[in-house]
Design a protein around this nucleic acid. Structure first.
Lengths: 202, 202
DNA sequence: AGGCCAACCGACCGGAATGGTCGGCGATGT
DNA sequence: ACATCGCCGACCATTCCGGTCGGTTGGCCT
């Protein structure tokens, strides 16, 4: 009881956070009922509300976690100079985070994937913009092709990591996911292909 | 006066169908209220139910239209031999259809984009499978990398066409969308880059 | 001009779903 | 034995849902 930093509870809560985020990303917060989240994590509604005192508290926790993830990704890239190397690194970092927390990443990329269909939490607009900043693109930017390619790559990333997670293929698919998203960015160096060693072609 | 083939009504209905499809794709049928669709098309609930007698009728109409589109795409490709040329052609056809009906295409690709999160209409499973067949991939196929890449490309396609439509940039973005999705497929011919000039399709 | 009808709306209805509370139950540690 | 924690079923007030109904507008035909 109130023992120092109960890690057990925290682990369960993180699972809840990610699944809830996945639902919020897909249907939006308003259209996701507490029961939906409870079903997704295998708890009763009351059981879930025992972990988070209210739906709104859950929302805040999810948002905070998503923002933290976005910041963590940004921190690992923002010092690098723009260019292919940075694109590649940003992608790998993002994919790693996404394979561990696919729902949260899907949520943080949500503003990029829906044409302003849902009301759109201002909190999320920020994380979406942060994700594009990692690739040196600001939403109102000038280079249209670049914006399209980055958005496409991130869309593929969100969908593929979610699918990989739900099929328990995270480690197996990782190189393919990275390669697919990287290629979508369209750096086509005629001869030199993906200089990194760790990636498979067969 | 049941005049011959009223084109006006049909045109309006198609707009409704596409917007409804976009909502169904994003939130699922159950979580989309009639009011949501009505708002999306700028009608009152009663006004919308005047076009389609019930929510279920709307659902059926949307599903039928999506299946028809999937078939139309498949027809234009299934005779070609598998390979780069076919991939490219399938992509162009799909993009053209998607830029005209982004919601319906998003719906028909929905089964590929959610890890079985929603119940998943069997009707849609078929259209999703059809979309992959256009690229010579069956869902239970063997080549993992190929499956990942096709899924990624289609995810990017769905998201980008939706965004392009909502920003009134369909013609401007088309070449970039095609290029992004094609590159995601990963055919890296060292020298040859997208030789085909633009090709239009109503 | 007058009749007619498609298109559309506000108001409403019964029933289902929603967020949240409460008391209780079994396991676990003390 | 007892307290505590995680969890549940049942319940409550309120909101939201799909669908109906009566009415109004405006265009078209005669």
């Amino acid at each position: 009881m109130q023992s120092v930093a109960r890690p057990f509870r925290q682990q369960i809560d993180e699972g809840i956070l990610d699944r809830a985020a996945a639902l919020f990303a897909r249907r939006g917060f308003a259209k996701t009922s507490v029961q939906d989240v409870a079903d997704a994590v295998g708890l009763s509604k009351a059981g879930l509300l025992h972990h988070f005192p209210s739906k709104d508290a859950l929302h805040q926790a999810v948002l905070a976690q998503a923002a933290a993830l976005a910041q963590r990704v940004l921190d690992q890239v923002q010092d690098m100079p723009l260019g292919i190397a940075r694109d590649r690194r940003a992608l790998e970092v993002l994919v790693d985070v996404a394979l561990a927390h696919p729902g949260l990443v899907a949520l943080l990329l949500a503003p990029l994937m829906q044409g302003g269909a849902d009301p759109g939490t201002p909190e999320l607009e920020a994380t979406g913009a942060a994700a594009m900043q990692a690739f040196g693109v600001e939403p109102q930017g000038d280079d249209v092709q670049r914006r399209v390619r980055v958005a496409g790559a991130l869309a593929a990333l969100a969908v593929l990591t979610l699918a990989a997670h739900s099929e328990d293929q995270t480690t197996a698919w990782r190189p393919y996911v990275v390669a697919t998203c990287f290629d979508a960015l369209g750096h086509r160096r005629p001869g030199a292909t993906l200089p990194d060693p760790d990636q498979a072609e067969a």
